[in-house]
């Protein structure tokens, strides 16, 4: 790892994924940041909100538009010690989705309580 960090500081990082997995590159490049960030041994949470909930949708088939299917990588986050995955329940419901439609186990948070999650963080990266 070229960027091994040995400063000893542990901060609470929250990645906020707000966009659909395809259509723009934000979702993929957000995931790359989460994976690289895992090497820094920080306290990491990921929140999926708005169209970002589609990133976790099962059975994605983006091969038809010739882009990489990176959705399976979300299943591997556990191996990177990224285990705190939050989904805003209203975002899910508004899109006709439920927890059963998602690739990974998540913790649902209500729209009214998202701010509590945000308030706890030191660093927020929103993509």
């Amino acid at each position: 790892m070229e960027d091994e960090y040995e400063g000893g500081v542990v901060k609470k990082f929250l990645y906020v994924n707000r966009r659909a997995p395809h259509g723009t590159v934000y979702a993929l490049e957000s995931l790359e940041t989460v994976l690289i960030g895992a090497a820094f041994d920080q306290d990491v949470s990921v929140l999926f909100i708005d169209d970002g909930v589609f990133q976790l949708k099962k059975q994605q088939q983006p091969e038809g538009i010739e882009v990489k299917n990176f959705s399976k990588t979300f299943r591997a986050l556990e191996m990177y010690d990224v285990e705190q995955l939050f989904v805003e329940s209203e975002s899910l419901a508004e899109r006709g989705l439920s927890e059963d439609d998602l690739l990974v186990d998540v913790e649902l948070v209500s729209r009214a309580s998202v701010h509590e999650l945000v308030d706890q963080q030191d660093v927020i990266l929103s993509f």
């Binding site: 960030g37 990266l125 929103s126």
Partner: peptide, 19 residues
């Protein structure tokens, strides 16, 4: 040009990360 680790490091070491 450098790696994403530079972003993480900046977030850890700075008082504020402004996007």
């Amino acid at each position: 040009i450098s790696g994403l680790g530079q972003l993480l490091e900046a977030g850890i070491e700075a008082d504020r990360l402004v996007t």
